[in-house]
Design a protein around this nucleic acid. Structure first.
Length: 741
RNA sequence: GCCGGAGUGGCGGAAUGGUUUACGCGUACGACUCAAAAUCGUAUGGAGCUUAAAACUCCAUGGAGGUUCGACUCCUCUCUCCGGCACCA
């Protein structure tokens, strides 16, 4: 470890206390300043504490928030806890402590860690999804969905995790058929479940992607997930098929049903059903085959087999020696089919309705009362929240019934409609329920009468920038867009898209290049690093380690380089600030750095920001001293990235009074961007042959540069005896002689 | 198979069509020290030439072509890796 006089542990702790006391990061409702709502995903407070990956996202965005504040924005940068759900429950079971006890303990640890990192969250707006004052509104949203027919019950084939003893959304099952959290192979079960009709919003979820600024990978992934395919449903007598290729109706040789469908089967298997259908186009008799390769719950569950234009149909036709007709696809068939009433246009989506109930204890109770006479009835809004009863034994039963089914005195209530004895719904909501809308609540976290006041929502929403992991693209990100659109439709929220911009960060891998995991023994804890090097070092290292949106492996040596850098910054401010005017080179470098850092932070190029800051310090050391004014500029440039170090320098070395984080973002002076001297590159046939240092005015005059270049000995050597065909001149940059080869 | 993204030193990585290898790490040598650590300084793509150094020359951004005065950057083909989706008709 470097031996620097700057003591991060002491200094960081000191400033964190002062910032907290003075409340300098509080967002102001209805300020005259322009608002900026910056959101990072709130975590579920696990027992393991903060992950190094949280620091990458929250740290970089913290710098962004600080920069925006210095620019004069009224910034909302909030944090909260997504504390319901399986992980919290499983952890509680494992440690033998009740979740209602574990969660607050874990939250305390997380919060302390956030503060030790110097993250500028506005803690006055902290939320917790397990707080009844919060989940009252989660339940309220469910009731609105129920009233509009968008929450309904149905017998569905669910993904059942035998280990976690619960059903899962499709999105929670990995492509290899295992649970994304525990890795257990998923079973399929038929069960009565609550579903949300997200499919009704498929088209808008797709269309409105055009109106927001999501990183291309993210938008693309949502498009794929929604999986729109436009085609037709065509009647072959009594049998209906769905196809995206009506233009190949002329080459159909069989129909294939999904009767023998088997998940994950590789080999195509089929059996002739003994029945025939009629091709409406030409009256041909078409055999109907029962097969295993057609997906039952897609389209009509039956397809038309067109071996000539579909590889899978070709495989099947060859195996069972079915006819293969080579005909040209005919675009006109779309209209012909419609005109003759053989079929109609139909758009199919891959997106399914979202299974919204879980047979678990640790979640929001679904606010429904089942009445033998009236059926499922909404709990009256005045009775919200339906509080989760305290249960000593809350382990999942394994029977598919929620543990709440055992709580008699909670369970049995009169029907709100007819007064007859009814029974509460015992399923709870999935962990996505609380995170669907949490960003709305930050606008007005303590409101007991509304989800949030209209005025505050009008002021703060939508979120200007939402930063989080790629893994939530088709889960939380899509779900919350759906819920927000619904709330917009019923007149609650002021816009139809919740996030104007979405950007994701790459994960931090272990030093061995593998995913951080206890089993690989390669987990790095933020506490350990902050304790040894300080929060500022960890923060700039995680920015410096690589491009923000790519995964990068951890390197402690590289981190030490950042630690050394902070030591050099400290020493430079201590010993290289004077009254003399700095050299022109240094001044130019300073203003170039200000310009570059500003551009890079807007483009989320955090790694090159740190490089530029380092470059400036290198030049500073080479060039001697800077004056106090320039020192004040540079320390303000550092402030968003190394908030503690910058604050300490700002006060203790430069003698300023107010917090640096309340000061202004430095602006570069364009007059210094024009360097006095320019290195002109001289090429012959595009190859570098010499460099000339000239003053910047000279470098823009072609004739002069040409003369100077020709007189240069190194260049002359290459031009000697050659015929110059052409001279390419780029003002201030390059001169290239093209000679005969 | 389809859709994204990426291949640059020993390593992480920079580079509006204009000096490839910024910045950092690592390594080597040196300073400080009784010594070590830490810190600081110098060097550091490869090959050739040279007693040595400087200077100079050639080669190099996964591979093969192309456009251009000039290509990491644009175009065509191709290989590899990462992520997502997947008998979705």
């Amino acid at each position: 470890m470097a031996d620097i006089k700057y003591n991060p542990a002491e200094v960081e702790h000191k400033w964190q206390g002062i910032w907290e006391k003075e409340g300098i990061y509080h967002a102001q409702d209805f300020s005259d300043k322009k608002k900026f709502y910056l959101l990072v995903e709130f975590p579920y407070p696990s027992g393991a504490g903060l992950h190094i990956g949280h620091v990458r996202s929250w740290g970089a965005m913290d710098s962004y928030a600080r920069k925006k504040r210095m620019e004069g924005f009224n910034v909302l940068y909030p944090m909260g806890w997504d504390a319901f759900g399986l992980p919290a429950e499983n952890y509680a079971i494992k440690t033998g402590t009740h979740p209602s006890k574990v969660v607050p303990e874990n939250i305390k640890v997380f919060k302390r860690q956030c503060q030790a990192l110097g993250l500028s969250f506005d803690w006055t707006r902290e939320i917790d999804t397990t707080d009844p004052k919060y989940y009252k509104w989660t339940q309220w949203i469910f009731l609105q969905l129920f009233k509009k027919g968008l929450a309904y019950q149905a017998e569905v084939l669910v993904n059942w995790c035998p280990k976690c003893k619960t059903n899962l959304a499709d999105e929670e099952v990995l492509p290899n058929g295992t649970h994304e959290r525990c890795g257990m192979p998923i079973e399929r079960r038929l069960q009565k479940q609550w579903l949300l009709r997200i499919t009704k919003y498929a088209e808008r979820l797709l269309d409105d992607l055009k109106t927001v600024d999501f990183a291309p990978q993210i938008a693309r992934q949502q498009v794929n997930w929604i999986g729109k395919s436009a085609g037709m449903k065509i009647k072959f007598g009594d049998v209906k098929v769905f196809t995206t290729r009506p233009d190949t109706l002329n080459a159909v040789t069989f129909l294939a049903t999904s009767k023998l469908y088997e998940e994950g089967s590789k080999e195509k298997i089929g059996k002739f059903s003994g029945k025939y259908a009629i091709n409406p186009l030409d009256g041909r008799k078409i055999p109907i085959w029962d097969t295993n390769y057609v997906t039952p719950d897609y389209g009509t569950g039956t397809i038309m087999g067109v071996p000539a234009h579909d590889e899978r149909d070709m495989d099947f036709a060859k195996k069972y020696h079915l006819d293969i007709i080579q005909k040209d696809p005919d675009e006109k068939l779309w209209q012909v089919i419609e005109k003759n009433g053989w079929g109609e246009k139909y758009t199919n989506y891959h997106l399914r309705d979202w299974i919204f109930s879980r047979q678990h204890y640790w979640g929001e109770p679904i606010p429904i009362i089942h009445c033998p006479k009236c059926g499922p009835v909404a709990v009256p809004e005045k009775d919200l929240p339906v509080e989760l009863p305290y249960l000593e034994k809350y382990e999942p039963s394994g029977t598919g019934e929620s543990p709440l089914a055992k709580v008699k005195d909670w369970l049995e209530v009169p029907c709100p409609q007819c007064g007859e004895p009814g029974r509460r719904e015992t399923d709870t909501m999935p962990n996505w329920a609380g995170s669907n809308w949490y960003f709305i609540r930050y606008a007005d976290p303590n409101n007991n009468n509304e989800i949030a006041s209209k005025k505050k929502m009008d002021y703060w929403l939508p979120v200007d920038l939402y930063q989080g992991g790629f893994e939530h693209t088709t889960l939380h990100l899509l779900y919350s867009r759906f819920i927000y659109k619904f709330l917009f439709d019923i007149g609650i929220v002021p816009n139809s898209e919740p996030y104007l911009k979405r950007y994701s960060h790459g994960i931090v891998l272990g030093a061995d290049g593998r995913k951080m995991s206890k089993s690989f023994d390669n987990v790095i804890s933020p506490d350990q690093i902050v304790g040894k090097y300080g929060a500022d070092t960890l923060r700039i290292y995680e920015m410096f380690m690589g491009p923000f949106d790519q995964m990068v492996a951890w390197s402690e040596e590289s981190l030490e380089g950042c630690y050394r850098f902070l030591g050099r910054v400290w020493r430079a401010f201590e010993s290289r600030v004077g009254n003399d005017k700095p050299s022109l080179i240094l001044l130019t470098k300073l203003h170039q750095t200000i310009n570059k850092v500003d551009r890079d932070i807007e483009a989320f190029k955090f790694n090159t920001i740190v490089s530029s800051l380092m470059e400036f310090v290198n030049t500073w050391e080479e060039e001697g001293s800077i004056d106090k004014e320039s020192a004040n500029l540079f320390v303000r440039l550092l402030a968003p990235f190394t908030p503690h170090l910058a604050e300490e320098i700002w006060h203790e070395v430069l003698g300023n009074a107010e917090s640096i984080h309340m000061s202004t973002w430095p602006e570069y002076d364009p007059k210094y961007l024009q360097v006095g001297e320019v290195v002109m590159v001289i090429q012959v046939n595009g190859k570098l042959r010499s460099q000339l240092t000239v003053n910047s005015e000279q470098s823009t005059v072609k004739e002069e540069m040409e003369k100077l270049a020709k007189n240069d000995a190194k260049v002359a050597k290459w031009l000697d005896g050659q015929k110059i065909k052409k001279v390419i001149f780029v003002s201030g940059k390059i001169i290239n002689f093209v000679v005969q080869k």
